[in-house]
Write a protein that binds this DNA or RNA. Structure first.
Lengths: 336, 336
DNA sequence: GGTGGCAGTGAGAGCGCTTTCAGTCCGAAG
DNA sequence: CTTCGGACTGAAAGCGCTCTCACTGCCACC
């Protein structure tokens, strides 16, 4: 429409303020070595012209972009159906980045092509650092970028030996508390619906279940799901078939727990009278299920924030902690 | 760590290929006017050096950034608790942007400071265009940016007279179908839980309810919520108090509908025998409620995609459609 | 055998900013 | 009254890329 009014440049501001470009630059970037009256004059000129620095020009010379990428695997529907995990991560990351005045570039991938795009984009130094959330298996990209000297932080302890800094929650501790709760309540046949065994969250939660059970004389009864509601439904059926007399089940995710609840209801089991159920996540929805779900709370928002914080630290050149573990906590409601 | 190996520049590639920078630039950008043998030589050099163009340098001269911003209001918890609306929008936008090889910069705001950041960032031409999702009331920023000549598209018909292009769903049509369904089933006292009246979605859905009811001899019974589960619970109590004999309720969002379901259960009403309930959204969760929720499906993913598509069109200089309306559809399940 | 025209290529001028590096100007010290 | 140092300021060199414009061959045409 409008002939896009010329955006003022440093040059223009310098002219108006009667100083050199260098001085304006110093004022804009808050250098301390500018005399007060001149600083004021420049600021007046900046305000008058509505000057805003051109980010491209700036990053061309500074080699910084003041933005970071958050890479999410766009795994089969999981990402954004009704699983609030990624949204919370995004939210947390965004909050933290805001305070540092950095931009958030979101990248979702599943296809090989998309993967390559991420690689190109990040190695092109289009961003100052990269965050990876919830990668399956042993993803090589984080390590690869790290080796190129690009700051990287991932969620979840990496599988295999990787030296990439990560942030995770205390899966094992949370699960053990959950299973202990079940044991303390006198439950004798405690089953579990585990998560995918190519993700650290799935692996660790199963390990926690086994570890706590090992201290008792109960045997383990295991079915595996993929964190989705359907898989929880399915796995619960399996479990009931394997041991019709089970009286408790620890489910490795809230969504699967809700699936399990549905199956139990369909099979005529009362919760918690016949079967106690404990989940893992503490999603909002679990406060409203019937019955409300006892679950292990993991601080996902904080996970996102911590993730960003560590990356910012690395970008600033500080040594990032190689590992940060956030606490989990059992939230007791009606289901167990 | 590693002394960040020098990234090769155009210059380096030109030297290796034995041509000028201009020619390399042409090859990299796919200009057709380069002789085949030279093109091949350049491509070989590019591959050999692992050359990736510096985006900052490029956008400094082209005035393009190949990225667009998506602005979300970080309204009181709503954004990312367990409401999959924004996640779906993001997902849709992201998909469409991917195919155009553009980057997605996510910006969340609620504070005035954040708002100003968005303004600075977007007017600094840090992005090629801006998408706004679900703004409350008559937000001035979209119009303001549009006036600066920056491509903008918003979700939801803007309140007030604004000329900003928008994408929305057919709220009224969907609601009318829902209410008609209730009427056809012989329900006589049909109430509604409306959404916030400072959002077009809230306004239009209430209008649809009134419009359809106007064709019958039924009177309207209205309570207002804010799209959250809690407000739905609350509003349902209100409604039951206002008219203990109501036998149906159209709820303007699925989350509120689930709240209403909880209240109805608590008050001893059977659904759908005593009270029929219809929601609006068709979130994943509504397939699993007890009973499964009859609801109006709105294609949120498509909304996001269309949003991005319109913006890309505008960025490409094509005339964007001033308004795009996506269809809604009644999905009948057990609750009505 | 000129003259045009065209396809392909290269030189060079920036895009708007940061950052040395070399002053300039003063007050303090000798 | 020099001399020095400190505190500022400005000139200018790029950062890596695109794109105009001029130029070189070459072929077609009269």
């Amino acid at each position: 429409m409008q002939p896009t009014r010329e955006r003022p440049t440093l040059e223009a501001v310098a002219r108006v303020a009667g100083v050199s470009r260098a001085t304006v630059s110093r004022v804009v970037n808050g250098s301390p070595k500018v005399a007060e009256p001149i600083r004021a004059a420049v600021q007046r000129a900046v305000a008058e012209l509505g000057y805003i620095p051109n980010p491209a020009a700036r990053s061309l010379v500074t080699q910084r972009t003041d933005s970071v990428a958050l890479v999410l695997p766009e795994a089969a529907g999981r990402v954004f159906s009704d699983d609030p995990f990624f949204p919370s991560i995004i939210h947390g990351v965004s909050q933290e980045l805001d305070t540092a005045d950095k931009q958030l570039v979101l990248m979702m991938t599943n296809t090989v092509a998309g993967y390559e795009r991420v690689e190109r984009y990040t190695t092109a130094r289009h961003v100052d650092g990269v965050l990876f959330a919830s990668t399956h298996g042993a993803d090589p990209l984080p390590g690869q970028l790290a080796r190129l000297g690009i700051p990287v932080v991932v969620t979840g302890r990496p599988l295999g030996r990787s030296t990439v800094p990560y942030v995770d929650v205390d899966h094992v501790g949370g699960v053990r508390a959950a299973v202990r709760h079940l044991l303390d309540a006198g439950r004798t046949r405690i089953a579990t619906i585990a998560g995918p065994q190519d993700m650290i969250a799935g692996i660790d939660r199963l390990a926690g279940y086994r570890a706590e059970l090992a201290g008792s004389d109960r045997r383990s009864i295991v079915a595996v799901g993929d964190f989705t509601r359907e898989s929880g439904q399915q796995a619960m059926r399996q479990l009931l078939e394997d041991d019709p007399l089970l009286d408790a089940v620890f489910v490795a995710s809230d969504l699967m727990a809700h699936g399990a609840l549905a199956t139990l209801r369909a099979m005529g089991r009362r919760v918690p009278e016949d079967v106690a159920v404990v989940g893992f996540d503490d999603f909002e929805i679990s406060r409203y299920s019937d019955p409300p779900l006892t679950t292990v709370r993991q601080p996902i928002l904080d996970l996102g924030r911590e993730l960003a914080r560590q990356l910012l630290r690395a970008i600033a050149g500080e040594e990032a902690a190689p590992a940060t573990i956030l606490p989990t906590e059992l939230v007791v409601r009606a289901s167990a």
